[in-house]
């Protein structure tokens, strides 16, 4: 009896330790054994030194993740004329980061700011979707209210303490390569898997709703539910990409690669092309940002815009 009791008490914590252990090993396997080794070899072969630095290896991994999930979700947003929802949710994520840092400063606990950002952004996503459903044509106004309201909450929280968290908030506002810690890279990797799975499973209804919302409803699809799913996936992308891109620029990866790929024939192929454009932008952007020691987010966005402009120029010349 006593034995059985001990066993039941011990089991949950053992399972927890076991799960954390497995997660650690998984991160090690992906980050060090696979990704690290590939880039080490690449560094040795090409003689490009920075590919061998662990913090750059993490930055490139983050770049690849962002290049995949941004356009993947953004393709649905752009063609529903909801490009601004990314920007709105980024600002709610900022409020979430501020709330996390605030809680940590005031209550002397350690809550990861990315976690609070994810919670607040996901909540804001559902609020925005509800407002859009009710407001109809005036969804711009709803988005503007949530965007500025979130930023207002963030700025109030940042200044409500004695100023200690104002320093930490800068990294989230403008993004940086240095913020991609092992833990953050692991979180981004996990979020990317979640987003990719989410879009893969719901691909068909999302395409239908994006192409013809009324038709999708007539065909019996639960349009509201898929809209909510898309909004929450957007929140996840925004929070994942925020560390490198920064709150203010993160929406760019949802929009610019997709805009660059609109000339491709076929929606599925346009999504693939947008991911390609995103990869060019993020990998080149991270590299240039390291070489010239300038902000990663800004560099990525500028490269993305250059890709967009180049594609449009070539397409214009071809016609």
């Amino acid at each position: 009896m006593t034995f059985a009791l001990t066993a039941t008490i011990a089991t949950p914590s053992l399972v927890l330790v076991g799960a954390a252990d497995i997660l650690d090993r998984l991160v090690e396997l992906v980050l060090d054994d696979v990704w690290g080794t590939v880039l080490d070899v690449l560094a040795a072969v090409t003689g490009i030194e920075m590919l061998g630095f662990p913090f750059m290896q993490r930055a490139y991994l983050a770049a690849v993740c962002i290049a995949v999930i941004g356009p993947l979700v953004g393709s649905f947003l752009v063609h529903r004329e909801m490009a601004m929802i990314g920007d709105t949710l980024a600002h709610s994520a900022f409020a979430g980061v501020a709330a996390g840092l605030f809680v940590n400063a005031v209550f002397a606990v350690t809550v990861p700011p990315l976690l609070t950002a994810l919670l607040v952004a996901a909540l804001a996503a559902l609020v925005v979707q509800t407002l859009v459903d009710y407001a109809g044509a005036y969804r711009d106004t709803s988005l503007a209210i949530v965007l500025t309201g979130s930023f207002a909450i963030g700025s109030v929280l940042v200044t409500a303490t004695d100023g200690g968290i104002a320093v930490g908030i800068n990294a989230y506002l403008f993004g940086s390569l240095a913020t991609v810690s092992r833990a953050n890279a692991a979180i981004l990797g996990l979020l990317s898997v979640v987003v990719t799975l989410g879009v893969t499973v719901a691909y068909r209804p999302l395409v239908y709703v994006t192409f013809d919302e009324v038709g999708a409803r007539a065909a019996g699809l639960d349009v509201t539910r898929y809209n909510q799913l898309l909004a929450v996936l957007t929140a996840v992308v925004v929070v994942g990409a925020m560390q490198i891109m920064g709150v203010i620029l993160v929406a760019a990866m949802l929009v610019i690669p997709v805009a660059a790929a609109t000339g491709v024939r076929g929606f599925k192929r346009s999504v693939a092309a947008a991911v390609g454009a995103g990869l060019v932008a993020t990998v080149a952007g991270v590299t240039l940002s390291y070489v010239y020691d300038v902000a990663a987010g800004g560099t990525i966005v500028l490269v993305a815009i250059a890709v967009y402009a180049g594609v449009k120029l070539v397409a214009g010349a071809a016609e």
Binding site: H79, T210, F211, D212, A261, V264, R265, G266, F267
Partner: peptide, 13 residues
């Protein structure tokens, strides 16, 4: 429509 959906993709819906 700016969405690059093809005719076949639309009919597959």
């Amino acid at each position: 429509g700016q969405m690059p959906t093809t005719v076949r993709e639309a009919v597959r819906m």
